[in-house]
Nucleic acid binder design. Structure first.
Length: 462
DNA sequence: GCAACTGTTGCTTA
DNA sequence: CTAAGCAACAGTTG
């Protein structure tokens, strides 16, 4: 579930019901959540009374008698339910439950089984793991220099800086995107390049976003509810998370999504100063490379998918992964491109999964390229843009078309002109042509071609 | 039916 | 040392 507001909401619900109660018994059907011997855990917790609850970052803490504390981290899906009795239909993900001294039950449910709990001596627990790894919460940070100090030598992007619990505690993926949106800061800016003024904005917005979310009882997204039949309301206020491909509430620009550190990151390119990205597609020998060259001359960061794939085949790490997934295309430990072609032709299933595998690797590469070059217009040449389902990843898509394809192929000394022409039938270009934002016609001189590129470029940077 | 995606974090690897 | 990538798991979505 939860980021800080959801944990705080959970804390308030439990506070109202469980302070003063004593643990009567424990049932552990999956011990993986308990970070100590589960027998000892049971023995130690039974008979202890709950004095109070507290929270450190995303950790929820039960303060117990006899100097002990139960420390819980819910990770993705962990949650407590406090119920009158055990009902079998409620307990499919309940891996631990506690019977309290009033014969009601506290259930720990966790469909993904990531959550963890610790039973620790209360004294000095803030100075020991896991709590010692938790930084200050945003309202306890009075000076933005605290953040700058943390980010000083870091080479990660600011989005990951906000998720770094040792730097600032409590933000998760949803609220980090909200804070960046409200602060009008690119998620992809390096944390060490954040200015004092920006750090100030980030802190103020972190406080605002988290406090608003707590007031609204957290966000109810996907499966998460603070208690049975109870929903948070904060999801109604979210302006960034989950709004990719929809219009920015502030400026109307289409919101975009990229990945950093494996976390989906939604932002408004205009408000958050992320340069537009362009996908360049077209059939074989339509003049894409010429167009790409022109974009480069204009100062854009450019890359072609063909080059990316070429790079992949010369990387040890890629070959290793490929070998694991598709052993049939390796001969005596070496990649055999003839075997790839043979398998492609013989086995439709192989072809499908091989193509998807390579395309998703390209997709990841392009994502990282765009993230690293967010402050420049990026242009990526992708012949199979639509087949690889990448058209949505760009601000703009443009196609290059020519009537002189055959001539260009002959001029290029292509071995089999007819065969090359035929490949176009399967490229998906014609069916998807109407989705393109802009079409460049390559039927005249090179100067004319460049002029069209220049016009497009100046349109998008204004 | 497969593949990608999901609110988290810590361990392994380069 | 840092930082990326993966692993833990199970459900949902396209």
């Amino acid at each position: 579930m939860p980021e800080l507001p959801e944990v705080e909401t959970m804390k308030r619900i439990l506070e109202n019901n469980l302070v003063g109660r004593t643990f009567a018994s424990v049932n552990i059907s999956n011990p993986r959540h308990i970070q100590m011997d589960s027998e000892r855990f049971s023995k130690e917790i039974v008979g202890k009374k709950i004095l109070s609850f507290s929270r450190v970052g995303k950790y929820l803490i039960f303060n117990l008698t006899e100097g002990l504390s139960l420390i819980v981290h819910f990770r993705m899906e962990g949650r407590f339910y406090y119920v009158d009795q055990l009902e079998p239909n409620l307990t499919s993900y309940v891996h631990i439950y506690f019977r309290m001294d009033n014969n009601k039950y506290l259930l720990y449910s966790d469909s993904r089984k990531f959550g963890v709990m610790y039973l620790e001596k209360t004294e000095g627990m803030r100075e020991r793991p896991p709590l010692s790894n938790v930084g200050k919460e945003p309202w306890d940070i009075s000076n933005p220099d605290y953040l700058l100090e943390h980010f000083k030598n870091k080479s990660y992007v600011i989005k990951l800086g906000l998720l770094d619990q040792t730097a600032i505690a409590g933000l998760g993926n949803i609220y980090a995107d909200e804070v960046l949106f409200r602060s009008r800061i690119s998620p992809f800016k390096l944390a060490k390049n954040i200015t004092y003024e920006e750090a100030k904005k980030l802190l103020r917005n972190s406080v605002d976003v988290l406090k608003e979310a707590i007031e609204r009882g957290g966000s109810t997204i996907r499966s998460y509810h603070p208690a049975q039949g109870v929903s948070g309301k904060m999801q109604l206020e979210l302006q960034a998370y989950g709004r990719e491909n929809r219009k920015c509430f502030v400026c109307g620009t289409k919101m975009e999504k990229r990945y950093v550190g494996g976390r989906g990151t939604t932002y408004c390119p205009k408000c958050q100063h992320v340069c537009p990205s362009v996908a360049l597609t077209g059939k074989i020998a339509s003049g894409k490379s010429q167009v790409l060259k022109r974009f480069k001359e204009l100062g854009c960061s450019v890359k072609s998918a063909d080059d990316i794939v070429h790079e992949f085949y010369s990387e040890q790490s890629f070959l290793a992964k490929l070998k694991k997934r598709f052993p049939s295309i390796f001969n005596q430990g070496k990649l055999d491109k003839q075997l790839i072609i043979k398998n492609m032709l013989d086995d439709k299933k192989f072809r499908r999964s091989y193509e998807i595998y390579v395309w998703s690797a390209v997709k990841e590469y392009v994502n990282n390229f765009l993230v690293n070059n967010f402050d420049k217009v990026c242009v990526i040449e992708i012949p199979l843009l639509f087949k690889a389902k990448m058209e949505k990843k760009f601000t703009y898509t443009i196609g290059v078309e020519t009537l002189k394809q055959k001539d260009y192929l002959v001029a290029r000394h292509a071995k089999n002109v007819e065969r090359s022409m035929k490949i176009n039938d399967t490229s998906g270009y014609d069916e998807n042509r109407n989705k393109l934002d802009f079409i460049i016609e390559n039927n005249s001189t090179i100067e004319d071609l460049y002029k069209q590129v220049d016009i497009f470029y100046h349109q998008i940077i204004n």
